[in-house]
Nucleic acid binder design. Structure first.
Lengths: 234, 234
DNA sequence: ACTTTGCGTCAATGCCGTTGACATAAGGCG
DNA sequence: CGCCTTATGTCAACGGCATTGACGCAAAGT
């Protein structure tokens, strides 16, 4: 396996522009490109241009763009969770965990959009599950409940994060068109056919935003209520 | 109605292959293509081939591929919601709506991934929003709350549906490997490093399933609690 | 110093969405 | 019935995309 050897490269050769390529440098540059110029800035050709090398040189380091994006995703997850330590308040801790995951995804929307539903089964994921389940156990839930509730929690977080990231990853004009729909198309519906929509027409602008925090808070409220009910019963 | 009503076409002309094009036929064929061969099977050129017409003919019906995608997306919503009539119990009605949307997306797993986060601005989506917001208004929420809570609700539903659909769309062996991970890799972690995981090891198999219904029920519990609190306060 | 070979470069392939010019037949109108 | 307008299918072309195979140079290992 000449190209994707995980071990240190033995031969290194500067590009025409004098750059020394490496997997790290490539993933970093890809992240930077996405962050600076939006999602459509990431193509093999543009990445090559940004790195000062021929586009095809990247194939010495990644089998294809999918593998490159997975490498980028790995890095995102790691970045998001580093430094997180759960506190004594399990609800607040789960909340912070949710926000961290969301922020990590939103920082790199395009990569996130395609990575959210892929299970990495790596160190970082182990630690996240351990942390989340541990928090629910500390809340007093029995193991069977803790596992199921954690799944509901993390899927809600991931689902919302993926949705938000996917919106963010849309080309600017499409995203703006989608958002404007709530203050134009939706505002001017026929009151006869759509009475509820008409009644809330002055609030519809809120539909353009993200519901992430509200949804997480609603979910955590439910978890807190169930934990409290448990404590009363026992 | 601002639904950009594409008024009935007056002139119709068969393609070289003898097909009469229409928005309906095109969206149907697109949906079928995606379902049969994955979302990368959907390109203007392939769609043209499947329809027996020149690719550029499609631009007589849709301004670009994005608009076509929105039409496909709206059709999924329509299929999911046809025949749904909200009952007097708003919680039960929202629950049924959630399940219907989930099933609609699962019926087209590959299309769901690319459609879940878009705002179609079309009739079926109008009706769905009308229904959902109407239910929340009937629960006693003021307009501003109804809109925000509906967004949290539908995003939770769509987020979960997209996750489930994305898993469904994975190649069989990969999906089974992912599911088995919860009964193998995760079960055998080091108890010292991962105490919580070890404590729940006999329940981890549940992580392989979907948390959709539990998550929806948790959310609806929260909504019901807030509605009750509202009623007490007033 | 000599050989080996990793890897950057070049050129080419075959996709993709989209556009503008063109041709033709459908349908209104007299 | 025949003309005229125009909707709409077709064709050719453009520029961008990911990916590949051949090539040759220089770095590593001896």
């Amino acid at each position: 396996m000449p190209t994707r050897a995980p071990q240190e490269r033995r031969r290194r050769r500067p590009t025409a522009a004098g750059v020394l390529l490496s997997r790290e440098l490539i993933t970093e540059t890809a992240l930077r490109l996405i962050g600076e110029h939006g999602q459509e800035a990431l193509s093999v050709r543009r990445l090559g241009a940004a790195l000062g090398c021929d586009p095809s040189a990247l194939y010495r380091y990644f089998r294809n763009t999918d593998e490159l994006l997975l490498a980028v995703s790995d890095r995102i997850i790691g970045d998001a969770m580093t430094g997180f330590v759960p506190g004594p308040d399990w609800v607040a801790s789960l909340r912070e965990m949710a926000l961290r995951v969301r922020d990590g995804y939103l920082a790199h929307p395009r990569a996130a959009a395609m990575a959210s539903y892929r299970i990495t089964r790596r160190e970082n994921e182990f630690r996240a599950v351990e942390t989340g389940v541990g928090l629910l156990l500390s809340a007093g839930f029995p193991p069977a409940h803790a596992v199921r509730l954690y799944l509901a929690f993390i899927d809600t977080v991931l689902g919302h994060a993926a949705l938000d990231a996917a919106c963010q990853a849309l080309p600017r004009e499409r995203r703006e068109a989608d958002e404007q729909a709530w203050t134009s198309a939706y505002r001017s519906v026929d009151p006869e056919s759509y009475p509820a929509l008409s009644e809330v027409r002055d609030e519809l602008y809120a539909m353009a935003g993200s519901s992430f925090e509200l949804a997480v808070d609603l979910l955590l409220d439910s978890l807190a209520a169930r934990a409290a009910a448990l404590r009363v019963r026992t």
